[in-house]
Amino acid sequence: MAKHPGLTPPRGSWHGILGAYVVGLAAGGKAERFAFALGDGTVHLATFTDPEAPDRTKVEAHHGGALCIAALTNSDGFVSGGDDGKLVRISPKGEMALLHDARNKWVETVATSSGLIAASVGKTVLLFDEKGQQKAEWGYPSTVSGLTFDPKGKRLIASHYNGATVRFVAAKTDSPRLLEWKGSHLGVAVSPDGGVVVTSMQENALHGWRLVDGQHMRMSGYPSKSRSLSFTRTGKWLATSGAEPIVLWPFTGGGPMGKEPTELDAGNPGAFCTAVASNPAADLVASGFADGAVSVADIDTKRAIRLRASDKDPISALAWSPTGRTLAYGTEGGAVGGFSF
């Protein structure tokens, strides 16, 4: 594949209106394909073969609202969870298969890796293969708020009250490791080398653990909750939302302990950053803002290109395709779009 062009204006873009809160956004497969999960329960697939006119399919995935979405990793397609208690696999053509029905409970988070699907229902996490075969079920001390696999797909990390739990998914004897820190942890991210776990917290702060020695990391100073976390492809930086600039914590040379974060201005004064997404192929970070602006910035030069103008509709979701050639966004008001580079 050709080298990523780096920071350039998009060669094409598309914008559409889906009409309900964009709750989640995932990208997967070899095609430039995205799935937008909406507050009205629908999931919309868009494949950007033509940057100006993506192929689109609407799927009535959930009766109620969708809550989470992730891309499958061994096959093409997506998996979504909803407040109707359903965990649904969606093919690229929009065909649905029910993987699990939690009935009265919500399927609040889902994560995928190496042919596995993990989904949380309250204090329980269920593990499936992509065919829908259940492989495991684990209980947690309190409701699971975030799920992620380490990059190799060996360990599953869940955030919950008073910390996060790391466990090996294929272990013969289950020996979960509790990473403890008092308070409510709302979401979780893991570094590309699998060595650092970071959670976002109720108190406008992040908390991190270096797994090798259990070293704690506290990252605070945000004026609002930092809900969107994205490690850059090399793991050098953790890009975060929650302030006016994009806040980038350094994870090299012993950081982030004792180091100031780098701030990258890519939005408008007065509008907090609400979503970040690190490019998987270049040192670029995309950002969305509470005023609806979307930008892409080069971390080294700190240069930013504005992709979407402010329209007062907060950006709620942002994702790159696996090639890093397409960036998609969704808003609270139900607007969506994509930029092809």
């Binding site: 309900a20 809160y21 709750v23 507050g39 009205d40 609202g65 609040e108 708020s145």
Partner: peptide, 10 residues
């Protein structure tokens, strides 16, 4: 958490 999610079903 729940109210936050409900608000997305505006």
């Amino acid at each position: 958490r729940i109210v936050g999610s409900l608000l997305k079903r505006r």
